[in-house]
């Protein structure tokens, strides 16, 4: 049984890889299979985890039913009013709830960690000193300077009310450079991630499927 599943996985992996050469019927078949299976998988997950486990077991069969879940269920059903064009506008209510509740939940967190704490962290002594000797720690001082220039120029770049001209434009330009360096570093990390995924697949093909490894 396991043999069959390994063979299916291997053929599908190779089928998807064949896209690298060019689009072909095997890739199309794999793609269609993937989309179909995943759509069905998620439908089952949503049904089992949300409707059955969370709602049915929580609000209907539980010893102490959680009646709040009925509110959620009713709001969820309101989504279906979209199917009837005349009352379709009702489906905006649950949508409004989702958007509003998420915004509310995140607002404080966002504000604290992305704005206030960041500024708090930026405020520090420009000249760092060694704790023991009191001598100037040049490395750390340089680091603080870079963070400072980066924060200021980055913020200026994302200022939309003023055209990027003169001193303002030059600062924004520095901000662009900082962004590019950040993107470069991030790119490197992502390449690393992608290579790991490829290695994982090749390990499967050579090891589990062909049995060459180990």
């Amino acid at each position: 049984m396991e043999m069959i599943s390994i063979w299916i996985a291997a053929i599908l992996t190779l089928g998807i890889f064949s896209f690298l050469y060019k689009d072909n019927p095997l890739y199309k078949a794999c793609e269609a299979l993937f989309v179909g299976v995943s759509a069905a998988y998620w439908a089952i997950v949503f049904y089992f985890d949300n409707i059955y486990k969370k709602f049915y077991e929580g609000a209907v069969t539980a010893e102490e039913p959680d009646y709040f879940l009925w509110i959620g269920a009713i709001l969820g059903l309101l989504f279906l009013t979209r199917l009837v064009p005349k009352i379709g506008w009702v489906s905006r209510w649950p949508m409004a709830l989702i958007v509003g509740a998420t915004a509310g939940l995140w607002m404080v967190g966002y504000f604290v960690s992305n704005a206030m704490n960041q500024i708090g962290n930026t405020i520090s002594n420009i000249i760092a000193r060694d704790e023991l000797t009191g001598a100037i720690a040049w490395g750390e001082t340089f680091g603080t300077m870079v963070i400072l220039v980066g924060v200021v120029s980055g913020l200026v770049y994302f200022f939309f009310s003023k055209e990027h001209k003169g001193v303002f434009g030059a600062t924004a330009k520095v901000g662009t450079w900082f962004l590019m360096v950040t993107f470069g570093a991030s790119f490197g990390y992502t390449v690393m991630s992608r290579m790991s995924l490829l290695i994982g697949r090749v390990d499967f093909l050579l090891g589990d499927w062909l049995g060459i490894l180990r």
Partner: peptide, 8 residues
């Protein structure tokens, strides 16, 4: 299409 990242 589907709710699965890579299938999408």
């Amino acid at each position: 299409i589907t709710n699965s990242q890579f299938a999408y």
